[in-house]
Design a protein around this nucleic acid. Structure first.
Lengths: 339, 339
DNA sequence: CTGAAAGCGCTAACAA
DNA sequence: TTGTTAGCGCTTTCAG
């Protein structure tokens, strides 16, 4: 009953060779339907269960697709993984994940370990790995897709959007709305390189328009609604006249709204709050918050497809896919029409 | 540079046997430090990267630990996975995940595929797999941990709490608060067996206390804040005198609060809202919501540890771990002190 | 401390 | 349509 039953046992019991049994158990192509039926029947009886490890070694490739994300407590990455799941459903590919916790050393170890499983492909978050990791990615024979960011150079393929432009775009929109006093609230800026890029884009755009003074409230703790609430309180205590705050993400911005609601600060009339990610929750908030809707699921899907297509293109001379831009949409309709 | 370099190449270049090279690359036990150093140096030069597939086949075991969850869009499961990550960090184990989408057929396929990788362990959500899947789990030589639920019989080991009691407990608390008119709002009740158990516990407890009439608003769509908002509106339109609503989870309850805030319904004075999960966000809401804080991370950690300890106990006669209960805490302080 | 032999369980590539 | 022959790259014996 246990996994001690091997293909050889099945073959013997069915009175065929291992090879025939092997063929019968998978493709069934070039095997008589009768044989297939008999072999499968016996396999079921014996409780035979194929061994992916042996199969992978024999044909020198696995059906594994490695995914490296910085965090799982962030719903964003869960959604990326859902997108990946969607794309590979039915292809027989299996995702396996690793979480870096934004730690480059851990990322290196993870990528190494994953690569040593000889995966069919690797999806890694971000373009800013350290040099060791980058070398691994570049040397990899398996297709590699870096996701979520296009500000930089990809080791192989890349699916995402410009974080810098996302930040700049939000700044431009706030400026266009006539806001004059801008603030910024962010978490994990010591390690979240994409959040840093957004902030840089935001500040740069403001600077271009002559807004030099931008008070910031930052922290190295991990993003949360509670942190957003507290940091908004602090920022506004020091700078009560702000009329727009950009947050490193929606979680913080939601905390900001909650603070404003408790303090009866009119949002968005007196103060516009802008987050990032476009979490579903944001659309349901009692007070409007601007956000950038990122197509995380699409990024996951596109990344997985890029790997699949690379496999399909194997040996052909088709030009290889490099960067797939994914649109993001600044969503501030509720915010601005409410003004 | 590529992964074409095998251990044999390294061994040859170092002038030792494959075996010595193998030993040098991992444990380093029973090998002279000199040899270890030389072999590793050459391995690095050659860009050698071990092959986990071959290693696993040779020693007939992998370092993979399979995790099956129903969904990733639910932050709860991401947190379980974080807990698992924590527990296995540094043990060299690799988690690989599969998502069922609450589909039993898909779950069966997933478990099969995972088992065929001969994992070091398997963590599966829930106790209510269909019979095929259950057979697989029971026949598995790898340790299996079912998580999140203890209402039922485990195939092997089990880590979680009673969903039924969680629902009943919330009912009791609401009753003790003097509430008289109870409602219920739930999503995905056609497939989320744990949500069903909570509702059953809730209704049963209410019935015991004589509250027979409990209007329900249910839907098969997936839980979301938006759904909670809409369903609360509908439920209250039909039953405006309700003074307590239990939701199948926090997402829906949060939608409920947002509805009440927009309609200026005093929460919790006029209406108590109760969710489930204890999401961090709930603690930051402008209006208090009761919830059941579940230790999801602990569940993940305990599950992973159960697998590790099973491995450690291999061959020994220690009694085997069966069920690990994990506390959940009903958190309604803000709700009730505010009353 | 090091090495040689013998597989792990499966499948590619032929051959029949 | 089926079978045979060789491995895949590593590690477990067991000898030196």
């Amino acid at each position: 009953m246990h996994s001690k039953v091997t293909l050889a046992d099945v073959a013997a019991a069915a009175g065929v060779s291992k090879m025939t049994a092997s063929r019968a158990m998978r493709g069934a192509k070039d095997v008589s339907p009768k044989t297939v039926e008999r072999v499968r029947e016996i396999a079921a009886e014996l409780g035979y269960m194929g061994n992916h490890v042996a199969a992978s070694l024999a044909n020198n490739r696995t059906d594994l697709i490695g995914v490296v994300v910085p965090s799982l407590s962030n719903i964003v990455f869960s959604e990326v993984m859902s997108g990946i799941e969607d794309a590979i459903a039915g292809t027989g590919l299996q995702p396996f994940f690793g979480v870096t916790g934004y730690d480059p050393e851990r990322e290196y170890l993870l990528v190494r370990q994953m690569l040593s499983w000889r995966p069919a492909g690797l999806i890694v978050t971000g373009l800013d790995q350290d040099s060791q990791t980058r070398e691994l990615l570049q040397a990899s024979t398996a297709p590699v897709v870096q996701i979520m960011d296009t500000d930089g150079t990809a080791a192989d393929m890349c699916v995402g959007f410009s974080q810098r432009e996302a930040g700049a775009g939000m700044a431009d929109l706030l400026i266009a709305q006539g806001r004059k006093q801008f603030g910024y609230v962010g978490c994990a800026l010591d390690r979240d390189t994409r959040a840093i890029k957004r902030r840089d884009g935001y500040l740069e755009s403001l600077t271009k328009s002559g807004f030099i003074q931008v008070p910031q409230q930052t922290s190295t703790e991990r993003s949360s609604v509670a942190a957003g609430k507290a940091m908004t309180a602090e920022l506004l205590a020091a700078h009560p006249t702000l009329d727009a705050i950009y947050y490193s993400n929606d979680d913080l911005a939601i905390g900001g709204v909650f603070h404003c609601m408790e303090q009866s600060i009119p949002v968005p009339e007196q103060l516009i709050l802008a987050g990032f990610n476009g979490l579903d929750l944001v659309a349901s908030l009692p007070a409007p918050v601007a956000t950038t809707r990122t197509s995380r699921r699409d990024i996951g899907t596109a990344a997985a497809k890029a790997i699949l297509s690379r496999h399909a293109a194997e040996g052909s001379n088709d030009p290889l896919l490099k960067t797939v831009p994914i649109q993001h949409v600044i969503d501030a309709r509720r915010t601005f029409t409410a003004k």
